[in-house]
Every structure is written in C-alpha cells, then in structure tokens.
Write a protein that binds this DNA or RNA. Structure first.
Lengths: 227, 227
DNA sequence: GATTCCTAACTAGTATACAAGTTCTTTTTC
DNA sequence: GAAAAAGAACTTGTATACTAGTTAGGAATC
C-alpha cells in the first residue's frame, strides 16, 4: 500500500478516504482482498474512527463491501457495476457536452484548451500523467454546466470504471483519447451540440474494445458471471 | 421531529439516517435550522457515533452542511441543487425508460401494473400514499434495467427535489401524475421507446409549473439567488 | 457607555474502550 | 481418529472520553 503524506488542510477522515481510494484504483490493494480498519489505521498513523468513516463512504459506491464483524472486502472487478458506471457517465456527460455548447464562456474554453495542451505535451513524454488530465477535462465540462454535485455522484461510481482504465494498455490508445478530447473541445467551441454529442459518444465507445482483452488478462480479479 | 420506532433489522446508523432523512424531506426539520449530533442522539436514544455517521452521509448530498466545531446546518431549499437533481433524474431516467422497452419481462410489467393499480386506488382516497408509490414506480424501472446503483446515487441527490415535491399541492396534479405513469407503462408494454421517452419527459415537465408558485409561497425556506 | 478581553459553555473530530458477532484452533468426548 | 464443543483471537458497531476550535456573555478597561 502506497502512503502519500497527509495534506495539512484535510481532516484525518478525508486523508484516509483519499489514500484508500487511490490504492484501490491503482490496484495496489488487490481486488478481492480483505482489509481491516485497524490495519489501515496503523499504516496511516490514525485511530480506527476516521478509517471507519472513510470505508463507510467507500462502501456506498460498492467499491468495498463491509462485512460486519468480519472485515472489509475490496470488491472484485464487477462487470455489472462497470456497466452501470459507464451508462451513468455516457448518459450524463452526453447531455452535458450539448449544454456546454451554449454555456461555455471564453474563459471556460481557455481552461479546456490549457488542459488539452498539457495532454498533448505529456502524450509522448509521460503517459501516466494523462489520466488525471483526462479526469480534469471531464470535470471542467461539469463545472461549465454548473453540475458539480452530479460530478461528485458520477465520480463515486466511476471508481469501478477507473480501476479498469488503469489496466488498459497505453500507447496507441492514448493518442486517440487525446484527439477525441480535441474533437469534443472543437465542437463546444463551435457551439455545435450535434458534433459534440457524436464526438463524446465516439470517445466513450473506445472502452468497449478493451474489455474482452482485459477480461482474459486479469481474470483473477474479475468476479463470477462476467462474460 | 418525528421519531418512528427502530426496525430491528437495521443498525443504529441506518436508523439514524432514515429518521433524519425523513424529517428533512417532510420538512419536520426546517430548512436553515441547526441540528446538533448530541441533540439528535438523545432524541433517538443513541450515542453520537451512529448519528455522526448518518449526518456525514447526508452531507455528501449537500442536504446538510457540517460546520466543524459549530454544528450541522440543514440546507435551505437551493434552486441550483434542485436543478441538478432534476437534470440527473431526467437525463438518467429518460435513457432508462427507453431501455426498459427492450428489457421488461412479463413479470416486470406485472409489477408495474400492480403499482399503478394502487396509485389509482389511493388517488382519491389517500393522496399522501402516492409519493412512496411514485418513488417505487421509478425504482422498478431502475431494477428492470439493472441499474440499482444508479438508483442509489440519483436518490441521494433527489432529496433536494423530494423536499419541494412535498410542498406542491395535491388534487389536480396527482391525477395527471398517475395518468403520466400509466402512459409510461403503456409505452414500455408496447415496446415503443419513442413514446416512452416522450411520456417521461412530459411527466417530468409538470414540476416546472409549480416552481414559481412554491418560490412565492415558501420563500423563507429558499436560499438567496433563486429566481 | 462602548470596547476589548477573557472565560465558560457549547460544537464536531478523533482516540480509546467495550460489546457483540465471526472464525479458527484447541480440547474434549465418544 | 473423528466429531463436537469450548474458547481464544480476531472483526466491526457503538458508547464514552478527550481534543481543539467556535461562540456568547460578562468583567475589566478606557
């Protein structure tokens, strides 16, 4: 388990939530493994209370499953939950990119452009930096549409999805993702909701291609009835 | 504050969450009022711990705002959050009713039909029973589409929306809501996604009509910049 | 009288202690 | 030796105690 330092501005509970989340998404904590509150509390140098509260929040998105008096099970990769997370993101964000065509100000477009510049910069240099930039690109679109609470809800569920994104191979795919973002940006800039919708759906469809490969490769992490 | 008995199958935390939620949605706890953990714990006959955890979960949907070392503020009715909740419901459930046309089995249709019978039965007898039936009608559609996790996320945000639904007057409106549900059901039964989509959007549009009236009537509960 | 400062009474965040349930090992029993 | 019973060693749920920060009121000061 990877333990970054505590940010002084965050509470112990927020710190515990952040560290556990990151380790689950990065697969440093293996799907299907059991984690104990005491064990994590000791590693983080905290008492059980903030760790308990962090796990409680994580259990709401079913990324962990608290088994009373037994322990806390980190969920296996579950195709049904990934399907739900993907459905939610596609449905919500498709509507958002359309709205963004109307709502985006010059400053908003500049923020997106700046994010895209960084994506293109890191594309060949340090692809690991792409995922946070990708996440932020989508987050900016929520902010443009004043839907930050929706963003929080969608993010929570997206953890299932993010964990698999980490398994996908980089290289060619990264190139396409960045150019997808560029296409979405152009459509918003041109205030063309039809093009924005099309570009976004093309973007999200890329994931489907990888799913079968990932299923083969990492089947020890994938729960039962996933095809 | 209205305190129903504790269901033996629920934990103290779940009990606290249920009671606080219900009292906020029913407006028995007034928007804008402060509530203390100790105060609620005493009323419910619990310690602060489960109440604290319940409030923590409620704060995630911004229905309460925890002010550290000060207290817990029950949020004012906030038009921005209602707009988000409505956006999320409309966006997600519009997609769902389309999918339901394909996915609904005979047993599913029967469950919807049964719910509709009850709605029509209580329409003139006991309109207060309509809201749980309404909620359940929508929940069944999530279940048909295997999107229960989405349902949980949408429900959490819908609390903002539900609190206002409680303010809307009954009578004529109830009649229309029940017939809307019937129309959605018929479209799903006929496997007609276009009709389902149209019926659902007409259904959700009814709310807009009430908003201005409610704003006038209950402005003491409504936060700042709501028009 | 108005202002400043200090103290006492609040609050939520967190640590610790205990209760209750699960699991696995050991001991007893046949 | 096999099976059943007992108990020790875990787990999370919850109560309690303490910490630290906020607020309000009264005393001291000008």
């Amino acid at each position: 388990m990877n333990v970054p330092p505590k940010n002084p501005s965050e509470t112990n509970r927020e710190y515990a939530f952040r560290v556990i989340s990151e380790n689950i998404i990065s697969l440093d904590i293996e799907p299907g493994s059991m984690i104990g509150e005491q064990e994590i509390a000791t590693v983080l140098g905290l008492s059980r209370t903030p760790v308990h509260e962090a796990l409680l929040e994580l259990s709401k998105s079913k990324i962990v499953d608290i088994l009373p008096q037994k322990g806390c099970l980190v969920s296996m990769i579950d195709s049904d939950l990934i399907r739900e997370a993907r459905f939610l993101r596609i449905t919500v964000e498709t509507a958002l990119v359309e709205d963004a065509c109307e709502l985006a100000t010059e400053a908003d477009l500049q923020e997106l452009e700046e994010n895209l510049q960084l994506q293109e910069f890191y594309l060949n240099k340090d692809p690991l930096k792409l995922m946070p930039l990708d996440n932020n690109f989508h987050k900016i679109i929520y902010r443009i549409c004043n839907k930050m609470q929706c963003h929080y809800m969608v993010s929570l569920m997206s953890m299932h999805f993010d964990r698999v994104r980490n398994l996908s191979l980089h290289s060619v795919k990264d190139l396409k993702i960045v150019s997808d973002h560029r296409a979405i940006y152009n459509a918003i800039k041109e205030k063309d909701p039809v093009a924005a919708r099309a570009a976004f759906q093309k973007h999200m469809a890329r994931f489907e291609l990888d799913w079968n490969i990932i299923c083969q490769e990492y089947k020890q992490y994938i729960s039962d009835g996933s095809k």
